[in-house]
């Protein structure tokens, strides 16, 4: 069997490509830069030079493929130009869907994000049917939601599609923009002091990279044609997460809390200064706020319908730390 895959040089796509190749699928990977050092190497992985913004390059690479995995996305929140987000996430997704529809692909598995649901309400974990309660906080969330609308459009036309809303991913893998948790672990290991904003009660859901890969394979193998699943692991707040990482790594880092408003003000001034002298800005206040938003969720639908089995945070973190 043949599968088409985008985002093979990204955190999730890279490992998914290797997993599918190991399972004896022929993987047609659409790659923008064939010189990239992040291209997964395996005899079953065939590299096709192309770009999701270029329809004919997709069509060429997707020919004779049974399934489509679309993991590519523009995620760089430091970017201020919404066109970059729109072109890759919305226009690019539409191109992939159009090709899949024209070529009669059996199913499209679309990698999305939990952030399209916005923050969770009080202590209620986000479920697939929860309506979004607040406005979009950044261009990534907005364009990923728009791309899901495109997926729904093609579902109505008769193209089977499964959307996977992945929570915060961690675990061994490529160092990309998308694995902040790994950076956090390294900081706890290396630094003697860690300065953090003081609202450590903010809780999120953390999912192990291996589980995300498994969920994609399960979604492909399942008989279910159209659905949306939250793919997550455990919910935990920063306080407990830091504690857990410290215990596993036997780190003696001192965690120093700083007033959140102070951090925000400081960051605003620092970024303004960096812009003035022509340096790229650090994490934006907007991004920081989104990192400290409550985003707890449940994957019970995926567990019951896809037989998805998330790894516990303890085991996942240990595996991650061993490979850092």
């Amino acid at each position: 069997m043949r599968v088409f895959l985008t985002g093979a040089t990204g955190y999730v796509g890279h490992q998914l490509a290797l997993e599918l190749a190991n399972k004896n699928f022929t993987v047609h990977a659409l790659i923008r830069n064939i010189e990239s050092r992040n291209i997964p190497v395996h005899t079953n992985i065939k590299v096709f030079e192309g770009d999701i913004c270029n329809y004919s390059s997709i069509r060429r690479a997707m020919k004779k493929c049974d399934f489509v995995f679309h993991t590519a996305a523009y995620t760089n929140l430091k970017c201020r130009n919404i066109d970059n987000f729109f072109n890759t996430n919305v226009f690019g997704t539409e191109n992939v869907l159009k090709a899949a529809y024209m070529l009669d692909v059996k199913k499209v598995i679309y990698t999305s994000t939990l952030s399209v649901f916005g923050p969770s309400y009080k202590s209620i974990p986000i479920e697939e049917a929860q309506p979004r309660l607040a406005s979009f906080t950044n261009d990534y969330e907005l364009t990923k939601s728009m791309s899901e609308e495109k997926v729904m459009e093609y579902t109505k036309k008769g193209l089977p599609c499964i959307i996977l809303n992945v929570t915060r991913v961690y675990g061994p893998g490529l160092k990309t923009f998308s694995n902040g948790v790994n950076r956090l672990i390294s900081m706890i290991i290396k630094n003697n002091i860690l300065l953090v904003p003081n609202n450590l009660k903010a809780a999120s859901n953390y999912v192990f990279i291996g589980d995300v890969v498994d969920a994609h394979v399960l979604a492909m193998e399942s008989d279910i044609k159209n659905a949306k699943y939250i793919i997550g692991g455990e919910n935990i707040d920063y306080e407990n997460l830091f504690q857990k990482i410290k215990i596993i790594t036997k780190s003696s880092t001192k965690i120093v809390k700083i007033n959140f408003s102070l951090v925000k003000t400081g960051l605003t001034i620092l970024n303004a200064f960096r812009n003035l002298v022509g340096k790229s800005s650090l994490i934006s206040v907007n991004m920081l706020q989104s990192l400290f938003m409550n985003r707890i969720s449940t994957s019970k639908k995926a567990i019951s319908e896809l037989k998805y089995m998330p790894t516990s945070l303890q085991i996942g973190l240990m595996e991650t730390i061993n490979q850092l």
Binding site: A134, S135, F136, D139, L142, T143, M146
Partner: peptide, 23 residues
């Protein structure tokens, strides 16, 4: 709507200041 959000984000700085979030 997502379409209007996109349109609003592409407005110039001055026009953008009048745009409200529905909540």
């Amino acid at each position: 709507t997502t379409g209007l959000c996109l349109q609003n984000r592409k407005l110039g700085w001055a026009s953008r200041q009048s745009i409200l979030n529905p909540e």
